[in-house]
Simulated assay, not measured.
Amino acid sequence: MLTKGDDFPLHQTPEPVAYAGTDRNFYDRYFFNGYAPDGSGFFAVALGIYPHLNVADAHFSCIRNGKQYNLHASRELGMERLDLSVGPISIEVIEPLKVLRVRVNGEGLSADLTFTGRAFPIEEPRFTYRIGPRTFMDYTRLTQNGHYEGWIEVDGNRRELASGTVGTRDRSWGVRPVGLPDAQPHGHGVVSSFFWQWTPVNLPERSLFFHINADRHGAPWNTRAVIAPDGAGQDGFYETPAASMQSPMQPGTRWPAGGELSIQRPEGPLTLTFEPLVRFQMRGLGYTSPKWGHGFYHGTLVVEREDLVLANLDPMAPTLENLHVQIISRVITSDGEIGIGGFEQLVIGPYVPWGLKGYDDPG
């Protein structure tokens, strides 16, 4: 059961705030992304708190003219979990579970962005996954689509957000690998892998959410599809695990080249076709980043800007830092709707259905 308190980083376990506990890898995290109806003007924000590592970090990214601008910040947490600012990046919860504001001002990158939810956030099934005997993930997440207002400035060039800018935000809390990796091996014969797809879609009058985590043989261990009409309350969703995604990879990469999602409904299947528009590298928010990974300790306060020319990145870099992407896509449904959404994908290690046998073999 979600409550207003679940929009604040107070959690002690992967359960909602009513429960408490401790774990070295416990985290509490915000994520936002947004884009114009044609996929332009992409931006993303993340802020994470790691109570037992005494670290808070935040990231801001935006894309203009084929270049991805990233701002990274990290500080010592100092035990205060309600200070939602890390150097030049801050988040304000204006109305829990509905309205939040992001501000950025540092290293030539500035923004003032206000998110308003289209419907009550969905609570995704609890993610619990082990590699051999070891718990790898155990967390809860809420996800919400919404509208944005505000502006972004890059090196003095300020642009107001385009009319109709939409996107997705989420909040997750629990246990993930954070900070320095565990040097203890998993044990003989344990082959780790990770398969993840996530497609939050903004349609004219409703939102649609699909995700899948699967093992290396393709068996889903966490998946669901949810349809949320605009203005829906906590009991106003249609949800089903009976959904499947067909998604070819771009040659020489582990990035999606589009896809077709089929969701079963009582009135018949709903099909969504994804047509790629813009690629965002999730390393801009710390995911798979060798330097700015989540929870890494950098000092009392460290801020750094990183500019990436997207066309120059090696999709199969040995460090795996470019595997994790969001492909902003035009979405067409079999109900005649045209919308836009993100297609996030991360595939690490073997995945038998796609013929992937190692950690660095492309599709």
Score class of each variant (00 low, 15 high):
residue 28 D to Q: 13
residue 89 I to H: 13
residue 284 G to Y: 03
residue 60 F to N: 04
residue 324 H to R: 03
residue 95 E to V: 15
residue 303 V to Y: 06
residue 234 Q to D: 13
residue 243 A to I: 03
residue 233 G to L: 07
residue 113 L to V: 05
residue 171 R to D: 09
residue 61 S to Q: 12
residue 328 I to H: 00
residue 46 A to C: 03
residue 171 R to G: 05
residue 132 G to T: 00
residue 1 M to V: 15
residue 56 A to H: 00
residue 175 V to N: 07
residue 37 P to T: 04
residue 261 L to G: 08
residue 138 D to A: 08
residue 199 T to N: 08
residue 103 R to D: 12
residue 35 Y to H: 10
residue 28 D to Y: 06
residue 260 E to V: 14
residue 332 I to R: 13
residue 97 L to Y: 10
residue 267 E to S: 08
residue 253 T to Y: 04
residue 277 L to G: 03
residue 25 N to M: 10
residue 313 L to P: 11
residue 226 V to Y: 07
residue 120 F to D: 00
residue 230 D to H: 12
residue 36 A to W: 02
residue 303 V to R: 00
residue 297 Y to Q: 12
residue 103 R to Y: 09
residue 10 L to F: 14
residue 77 L to W: 14
residue 129 Y to I: 05
residue 29 R to H: 10
residue 334 S to G: 00
residue 55 V to P: 01
residue 4 K to W: 14
residue 10 L to K: 05
residue 255 W to D: 03
residue 14 P to Q: 01
residue 232 A to S: 15
residue 175 V to F: 01
residue 328 I to A: 02
residue 20 A to E: 14
residue 279 R to Y: 09
residue 256 P to Y: 12
residue 251 P to G: 08
residue 229 P to Q: 04
residue 122 I to L: 03
residue 171 R to Y: 05
residue 179 G to H: 01
residue 108 G to R: 13
residue 98 K to H: 15
residue 2 L to S: 12
residue 162 A to D: 12
residue 242 A to S: 11
residue 144 Q to W: 04
residue 224 R to F: 01
residue 203 L to V: 08
residue 255 W to G: 02
residue 172 S to T: 09
residue 50 Y to G: 07
residue 363 G to M: 14
residue 231 G to C: 10
residue 311 A to D: 14
residue 76 E to V: 14
residue 77 L to P: 11
residue 37 P to Q: 05
residue 130 R to W: 07
residue 293 G to A: 11
residue 336 G to H: 04
residue 209 F to A: 02
residue 190 V to P: 04
residue 131 I to T: 07
residue 80 E to G: 10
residue 38 D to V: 01
residue 106 G to T: 11
residue 267 E to F: 00
residue 357 K to E: 03
residue 114 T to S: 09
residue 41 G to K: 02
residue 277 L to C: 00
residue 144 Q to T: 08
residue 161 L to P: 07
residue 284 G to M: 00
residue 47 L to F: 02
residue 219 A to Y: 07
residue 278 V to Q: 11
residue 265 R to S: 02
residue 262 S to T: 15
residue 13 T to P: 12
residue 190 V to N: 05
residue 85 S to T: 15
residue 32 F to K: 09
residue 23 D to L: 08
residue 151 W to G: 03
residue 107 E to D: 11
residue 44 A to Y: 07
residue 7 D to R: 12
residue 189 G to R: 08
residue 285 L to M: 11
residue 294 H to S: 05
residue 326 Q to M: 07
residue 5 G to L: 15
residue 346 L to M: 03
residue 301 L to I: 11
residue 110 S to K: 15
residue 165 T to G: 06
residue 27 Y to N: 09
residue 350 P to H: 00
residue 179 G to V: 13
residue 43 F to S: 00
residue 68 Q to E: 08
residue 91 I to V: 15
residue 57 D to Q: 06
residue 359 Y to A: 08
residue 70 N to E: 12
residue 184 Q to T: 15
residue 9 P to K: 08
residue 313 L to T: 04
residue 97 L to V: 11
residue 52 H to Q: 15
residue 362 P to Q: 04
residue 142 L to K: 09
residue 236 G to M: 04
residue 353 P to R: 10
residue 198 W to G: 06
residue 309 V to R: 14
residue 151 W to Q: 07
residue 295 G to D: 06
residue 200 P to M: 01
residue 67 K to M: 13
residue 354 W to S: 14
